[in-house]
Amino acid sequence: MAKVEMYSKFMCPFCIRAKHLLEKKGVDVIDIPATKPEKRQEMNARSGRNTFPQIFIDGKHVGGSDDLAALERAGKLDAMLGL
């Protein structure tokens, strides 16, 4: 199974939606709270974006919640997750 990392912030509805989709698939998500400036800078450096969440599957940036949902609708997410 793929390693999934997600930069998030507390009570972010997009973060919650993305995490629920991944957990529904049985994926353990490494949640990285990006509330501290250094974690937010790390997220920006890795993703080139400053919105939440930012999701990485096996180190590859896949985007945010809407991007994750689009991968699911296109039938591509399971393969990326190694399911």
Rank of each mutant, 00 (worst) to 15 (best):
I16H: 12
R17P: 10
V62I: 13
G59M: 00
P13N: 05
K39A: 14
K60A: 11
L21R: 10
D31M: 11
F52E: 01
I55S: 03
F52Q: 03
R40W: 08
R46Y: 02
R49L: 08
I30F: 09
P13Q: 06
K24S: 14
H61Y: 09
S47N: 07
D58P: 03
T35Y: 13
D58C: 02
A34L: 06
P33I: 07
D58R: 02
K24R: 13
G26Q: 04
D31E: 14
K39H: 14
A45E: 15
D28H: 12
P53K: 10
R46P: 01
R40Q: 12
F14V: 07
T51S: 03
I57L: 05
I32W: 04
P53E: 06
N50M: 06
M43H: 09
I55H: 01
E42N: 12
V29W: 06
M43P: 08
M43T: 13
G59E: 00
L21E: 07
S47A: 11
P37N: 09
P37I: 08
R17E: 11
F56H: 06
V27W: 07
K25Y: 06
E38K: 11
S47M: 10
T35E: 13
R40F: 15
E23F: 05
K25W: 02
P37M: 05
E38P: 07
I32E: 02
